[in-house]
Design a protein around this nucleic acid. Sequence first.
DNA 1: CCCACGATTCAGGCGAAACTAAATTTCTTG
DNA 2: CAAGAAATTTAGTTTCGCCTGAATCGTGGG
Lengths: 230, 230
Amino acid sequence: MPDSNPRLSVSVEDYLKVIYNLSGSEETASTSAIAEALGVQPASVTGMVKRLAESGYLTHVPYRGVTLTAEGDRQALRVIRRHRVIETYLCTRLGYAWEDVHDEAERLEHAASEQLIERMAEALEGPTHDPHGAPIPTADGEIEDPVYPTLADSVGDRLLVRSVADDDPERLRYLEERSLRPGAGLRVVDRAPFNGPITVRLTGAQGQPLGKSLVLGFDLASRIFVSAEV
Amino acid sequence: MPDSNPRLSVSVEDYLKVIYNLSGSEETASTSAIAEALGVQPASVTGMVKRLAESGYLTHVPYRGVTLTAEGDRQALRVIRRHRVIETYLCTRLGYAWEDVHDEAERLEHAASEQLIERMAEALEGPTHDPHGAPIPTADGEIEDPVYPTLADSVGDRLLVRSVADDDPERLRYLEERSLRPGAGLRVVDRAPFNGPITVRLTGAQGQPLGKSLVLGFDLASRIFVSAEV
DNA sequence: CCCACGATTCAGGCGAAACTAAATTTCTTG
DNA sequence: CAAGAAATTTAGTTTCGCCTGAATCGTGGG
């Protein structure tokens, strides 16, 4: 096992994060998917992947894709924890708007010490989800696993918004304005074919109908994660 | 004038900070002094200095030293403000010990946005001094200028600790344990010749004598800044 | 006036990470 | 099953930012 506290480079941390996320849906992450996510050429990914494999963070089966090792997972979760704790802290303690926290966290997550993160988490009394609804891994790397389906591929009369993708301020602002945040209840009213728009009606957090009817593009809908209302 | 918000590299920010500090005592900073402060070779400094001069942050008279331009000053003060606001925030809002904040701030100051700093400052209600007593520049670059003499070269019956150098955790812990923090009042009891130790007696913050007598090495004493008690 | 010392120039190196282009493997599909 | 398409890897470069050692150059005290 590598030294448990090697200071990882920004790039390495970004790779691990992206690979972790890609490994969520598929079991293994492909070179091109990683390249796409990082905005880099596939050849660059192969190079970095080789180094990460040598360092023991992942295993690489040529032409087949990569999988994080236990250690790689651990590191990825540490970065993700840092990111999400920071986001939460910025929102609830420093008055940030939820669409502004991602970029700030993106930079701070690479500079913040473990100590800082733990103190923030303490101040927040052990937050479990970030402002966009994503679960925060615990300090020892446990994370709530249910991966929810997106609004784009779920039907149902009583759906609950679990989380939304956090990386696009524009989209977040749009959703915010329409009360489409984690915890919101909604009902799918219509679903146009061929990846067409999806019409929903908000039911409000506590179930009282708000009556607002919204038409969401397929793209946007596939960045909103929902579950059946409990 | 350069773009007022060019993202400076970590190195550049460190150079500006160091040059600013060196320019405090002398009017101009020498190549070797900068090299010493940054732990690099003088040749490296000359190279970087040339680039900084081209970017308009300082003027360089070969063999004579460097001076920050107005713009360089502005940038240096921004970094220093970031550093000190962060230190203050960590201490008062996240329960950091004063000897731990320097390193954390050293990393965060390069990653934090101006927005984050201003929000922290707001939360702290416009802090004027960091935990070590150093003045915090305002958002538009004003800074309290009195540079206090050190305990090593001041005499007096009623002295007030203004600030202490912030970069050495060991020393800070030592001072903390002995109540030698900004605001402490003291009296110089004895001063050994040849840069020898200095004996002081604490008088307590509000003037009530605490009677504690301390012997401080010359080195340590020259990192404690004092003024005549007001 | 000379020379030691600090400052500068020069040529080069290094590490990290990216890129292009070409070769190779795997997938797909007729 | 073969062949073209797509994905991946290899190999070789490039870039960036910063650093270094060695040789050279100013400067100012003796």
